[in-house]
Simulated assay, not measured.
Amino acid sequence: MDSRLHIIAGFKDGGSYVKDLYVSLPFRVVSVGQRKSDNKLYQMVMSSSPGILVGDHYHLNIELEKGASLQLQSQSYQRLFNMKDKAVQELHVKMEDHTSFAYVPHPVVPHEDSNFQSKANIHIGKNSQIIISEIITCGRKHYGEVFKLKRFQNLMQIYHENKLVIRDNVVIQPDLIPINCIGNLEQYTHQGTLIFYTTKENVDKNNLIETIAEWAEQHKEEMEAGVSAMEDNGFVVRALGHGGELMYNFFLQIQEILWSLE
C-alpha cells in the first residue's frame, strides 16, 4: 500500500498551528497538546493498520514554516510483519529558520523474516533544532523470535544550508553480521539512538551532555548509554538494553529538556 502523510506547521500570532494536513490510509493525525501553554504544536500519528506489511511504502512529509515548533508523537510500538519482499518508509522534513522539530517514537518490533528500509532526509534552517530518535527491539522475544528478521536499515541524513552535517546508518542483518559478536549488540536485545542537532548559538552542549550522562548512570543496571558530542552544537545518544520501555522513557526524558530550550 502506498500511504502518505503531509503536515505543514505554520506560525501566527506567537503560536504554532496546523496550516495544512493530508493523510491517506492507514494514517490519522490528532492534536494532543490542548493542555500545553507554550504555544507549540503537538500532534500524534495514529494508524488503523496493526503494523507495516510487505509492499507498504510510507511517504511522510513534514514542513515547518518560520517560527513554528512541532512535536510528533507515536501511538504505540511499530510492528514489522513477515515479508517475502520488503517495506519502505521515507521521511522528508523541511525546517525553515527559527523552528523546532521533535520526533521520539515508540520502539520498532521486527517480526520473523521482516525486511524494512527507512530513510530520512532533514533540512534544518538557521537558529533551529531537531530531536529525533529510534529504538529497535529484538522482535517478539516471548515467541522465540530473537533477531530472526531478514534485514533492517534506517538511514538518517541531516542537512544545513545544503551541506550534509549528520549521516547515521543503522543496519541489522543477522545472516551477514552476527548480532551477538563483539562490536555489535553482544548480549543486549534492544538498541536506541537519539540525535540532537541545533543551529542555535546559545546552547550549552557540554552541560546537556553531562546531565544526560548522569541520568544514564542511574539506569546502568538495566541499560548502558553513552553520549557522543559533535563538532557543531549537537550530540548522539546511543543506548543498549534488554527492554524497550525503559529506553523509550529515557529518550522522552531527554526530549523534555531539549524541547524546552529557547
Rank of each mutant, 00 (worst) to 15 (best):
S69Y: 12
Q73K: 15
N82D: 11
Q89V: 11
D85I: 04
L41P: 01
K86P: 00
P50R: 10
V104W: 01
H106T: 02
H92Y: 14
K86S: 14
H59K: 10
G55T: 09
V54G: 11
S69E: 08
L64V: 05
S69F: 10
P50S: 13
S100G: 12
G51K: 05
D56G: 09
A87R: 03
H92E: 10
L72E: 06
D97E: 13
A68D: 08
D85P: 00
L41I: 08
G67C: 12
L53T: 08
E96H: 13
Y42F: 14
Q89K: 14
L53I: 11
Q75T: 06
Q78E: 14
V45C: 07
E90Y: 15
L70H: 06
H57K: 14
A87N: 08
L64Q: 02
N61I: 05
Q78M: 13
M44Q: 15
M95D: 03
Q78H: 12
D56H: 06
I52Q: 02
H98D: 15
K84P: 00
G55F: 09
L91H: 04
L72Y: 12
V104T: 07
S47P: 03
L41G: 03
L91G: 07
K94P: 00
Y103T: 07
I52G: 01
S74W: 11
V104A: 04
V93H: 02
M95N: 04
Q75H: 13
K94S: 10
R79F: 07
S100C: 06
L70R: 10
Y103S: 05
S49C: 10
D85F: 04
S49W: 05
K84D: 11
L91N: 14
K86G: 01
E65I: 11
H98N: 15
P107G: 06
G67M: 12
M46S: 01
Q75A: 12
I52M: 05
V108P: 05
A102H: 01
S47G: 04
I62N: 00
H57G: 03
L60E: 00
G67A: 11
S49F: 10
G67P: 12
G51I: 10
F81H: 14
L60V: 06
